[in-house]
Design a protein around this nucleic acid. Structure first.
Lengths: 227, 227
DNA sequence: TGGGAATGTCATATTTCTGTTATATTCTCC
DNA sequence: GGAGAATATAACAGAAATATGACATTCCCA
């Protein structure tokens, strides 16, 4: 998943970032709400993890702003204490889950998995779309007895597209989402990546699943003849 | 949609224009109320976005003038502060919605979507006319199992005509509306565009929907035999 | 540290879009 | 019915978007 993590204490931020990355997610970890606001509005995340207490703009406000933008990705709040009033406030702001600080990493990962499961196509360790299966832990894509390994980039793109299958995804969108803001590509990296993914899909006779919408972007869909 | 955006600060105008264009709208962004008045009276917009504070003629006055012309497109005001009296004044002037400056772009886009939804033919992501469906996010037009992609220009024209179905639309009207004043075509671009759209409609057996009213313009209607 | 995979970059095709020109057709009104 | 205007059709061409493939660099693991 593509995750935004906001936590003002670097000592806490770092290990969380590492843990999430190691579980196969793409994480943007930022320490202040200004950066968070910018990223929130620019990128298309699968999950937000917000510290409740943040200088300047609190996590609750961030969550409210995010929801005001009409975005629906789940939001997980990190609260210092377990008070009911906090919980209610957070719910009103549009949060989906809570975690008491200090954060227990395995529990965080469990919650993240649980929230990720809300994607309709999720089954166990894999994302499904038609008869395509994407195994999250092994980065393999399989269809009818054949399975192939994707590179990291290819995998993240595929996951991103699968979670949004049917929608048209802008090339800008992909660029902003798959590349961290400090490493944005300057040329046609996106085109090249799409091309590589297509070659992989071709190995599974699924090239037609990923179509170009000229002037708009790309779309991953299940062809008519597939269940 | 065809949108008129008036904001005297170029630094604010620019990003808004870009954001709206990227969401698939046609935007005329101007910096002063004189240009706005001219465009307002000439072109046929789907939405007006007016800054409250403008030199010479304020946004509120612009809104009043616009309404005095009997035009009904929704108006979204950008106000510096969130005061009730402003809100009342604006409502009296005929505004439909408000946004506090500085403008949060995603929120603006959400409001714009909401206002666009007021068109009677609006359903979810698509405009409907008879059994014709125009998908805004994919620029596809479909009818009875068949769907075809429109080019950007074709799409905007189709949207324009659908939102005004039954009315006769001048060729001048189309020219003024679909082309920004600084890029007006010098030849029969409009005719060519109409022709191309007709070819597309023909693929859906709907060529007869778009009729020529000789000496007047064009009109898109639902044929008798269709519900 | 070396080698291979992964990935960004460049140069070059290919496709699609769209304004233009040139020519044909249709319409209105006398 | 015919003149002249309005509209339609068809082909062309430059521009923009996307695809392709070769190449260079980076990254990671043995």
């Amino acid at each position: 998943m593509i995750i935004l993590l906001v936590e003002d204490d670097p000592a806490q931020l770092r290990p969380l970032c590492i843990a999430l990355s190691e579980s196969g997610h793409l994480v943007d970890g930022v320490e202040n709400s200004q950066d968070a606001q910018w990223l929130m509005s620019q990128k298309d995340y699968d999950l937000l993890i917000l510290d409740w207490m943040l200088p300047v703009v609190s996590g609750v406000s961030l969550c409210q702003q995010y929801r005001a933008q009409g975005k629906i990705a789940p939001v997980l709040m990190l609260t210092a204490k377990d008070t009911t009033t906090d919980k209610v406030t957070g719910l009103d702001a549009g949060a989906d889950d809570y975690l008491i600080k200090p954060v227990d990493i395995p529990e965080l990962l469990a919650r993240v998995r649980a929230l990720g499961r809300r994607s309709p196509q999720w089954h166990g360790d894999l994302l499904r779309l038609g008869d395509l299966h994407l195994h999250l832990s092994t980065l393999t894509l399989e269809r009818q007895q054949t399975s192939i390994r994707l590179s990291s980039r290819e995998f993240h793109l595929m996951e991103y597209l699968m979670r949004r299958s049917g929608q048209v995804i802008t090339r800008d969108n992909i660029e902003q989402t798959l590349w961290t803001w400090d490493t944005e590509p300057e040329s046609n990296a996106v085109t090249a990546l799409i091309w590589r993914l297509r070659q992989r899909l071709d190995e599974l006779d699924a090239k037609s699943w990923l179509e170009t919408v000229y002037g708009m972007g790309y779309r991953l869909t299940v062809p008519e003849n597939i269940s």
